[in-house]
Amino acid sequence: MAFSFVGILAVVLEFFRGWFWLLIPLIVLDLVLLGLFFKRTSGRRRKFSLPFKASIGFGVFTFVMALITLPGITRSSWEMLAGAVDYLSLIGASVGFGVLFAILAFPVMLHMLGIGPKHKPESQATRQSPAPETETGAEAEPSTASQQPQG
């Protein structure tokens, strides 16, 4: 019996319906945290690279944990896995958990690691030399050179 895309989506929604009490507040909390982050960083530098990397790290940790524990959580064991389907499904599910937790952790990481120093006043900035290029310009810290008075 073939399942349509909408059919699979309906089953997924039913699967999560029992967890809405947890998921919806979590998502709302994340959105609020995101909003607060942008409010808090108004007039400040925003650093995205480090929170992103930290979230990825958290996701990878979750992925590994899921890989190890999912068979047991499903009342099964590693011994019961047989063939590519089982192993690929386990990896797929673990990746899914990893991505989900990384996304959920990102707003928290932004608050912990993403708030940079205040922008310099424009008059002072015009006297400074341009900051050297970095991976993400937004989080470039003022270099020693940029703090030297010009001329």
Binding site: F15, P71, T74, R75, A82, V85, D86, S89, L90
Partner: peptide, 12 residues
């Protein structure tokens, strides 16, 4: 063949 995936389907 026996697999883990159908068990997860049944259980979850």
């Amino acid at each position: 063949e026996e697999h883990w995936v159908p068990w997860v389907m049944k259980d979850r």
